[in-house]
Amino acid sequence: MTGKSLSGTTAVAVAGILVAFLMAAGCLGGQSSDTPGSQQITVTGSTTVLPIAEKAREAFEESHASTGIMVSGGGSSVGVKAAGEGTADIGTSSRDLKPEETAGYPDLVKHHIADDAILLIVNPGNAVDRLALDEVRGIYNGTYTNWNQVGGPDAQIVVVGRDSASGTREFFSEYVLKNEDFVKTQEEFNSNGGIQQKISQTPGAIGYVGLGYTEGVKALALDVNGTAVEPTLEKITSKQYPISRPLFMLTNGEPDGLARQYLDFVMSGEGQQIVASLDYIPVQG
């Protein structure tokens, strides 16, 4: 009787192993990793592109319920490296590729998904409504340290900017600061949201952010040849507002599978409506 019991147990164990093997091989109708519904991808990089990537993910997954898209920030440099080295399926960037990145990752493909502008923001209680680009440069290189030097109240200027991984910082440094050194007292944050929160809570602060980060702060007009140009979508699209740039998603070679589907969605009519709803500028009609 004991022998019959052991034999039965062995048979059950062998059968279990066989079933597990067949399921792993896809022979019993189990979902393999090649099944589109079971795919997962990662999207990482620019915090400027982050709201677009996240909202697009939410909408995409509503009609692709069994897919998984992991979206995170970290900065444009993080996105470029992750896409180039294959640690993410899609990288995001709010700046163009540097020559060394193009050389190091020759297979990177840029997908121009939207346009954006960089806004100068201050606390809503600040009386200053407009600055010339030269004044902005003077604030960020340390020439101006008090708001009364640029037409404001007698109050110290608290300079706020992005960290070195930021594509927004790269663009701001080249276009506004003309590659001069940032003032050493600048407080650095690793996200647009961090700057937005700091400015909203600090009366004397000034910072720069992407278009989607204006809640609780005041966006300044830029003085262009004596005319105050506000950062409205109309004036950004018509190039009257001077600080604008393209936004990219990056893939290592031409994308396929779920990455291709997700990128196609971002560029679709619905995806570009999401871009517009977040106050960025669509690139497809």
Rank of each mutant, 00 (worst) to 15 (best):
M70P: 04
I121G: 00
D96I: 02
V128A: 09
F60I: 00
E135C: 04
H64A: 09
R137H: 12
Y105E: 02
A59I: 02
T92K: 10
D96V: 09
S66A: 12
A88G: 06
S63Q: 14
V80Q: 08
A83I: 11
G138A: 07
D129W: 06
H112C: 00
P106K: 00
G79K: 10
G74S: 04
I113T: 02
W147M: 05
S94V: 05
G75D: 08
E85A: 11
N123M: 08
S76I: 13
G91V: 10
V80M: 07
D115H: 09
D115V: 01
R130M: 14
K98Q: 13
G151N: 01
I90H: 04
I118W: 04
F60Y: 12
I121R: 00
K81Q: 15
D116K: 01
D154F: 12
G104A: 03
N123P: 03
A83V: 08
G74N: 00
L133H: 03
T102P: 01
G73I: 05
G138P: 01
N141H: 11
E101L: 00
H111N: 09
R137W: 02
E100V: 07
G91N: 02
A82M: 08
L120M: 13
M70I: 13
G152F: 05
E85I: 08
R137L: 11
V122A: 06
S63R: 12
Q149T: 06
A83Y: 07
E100R: 08
H111T: 14
D107E: 13
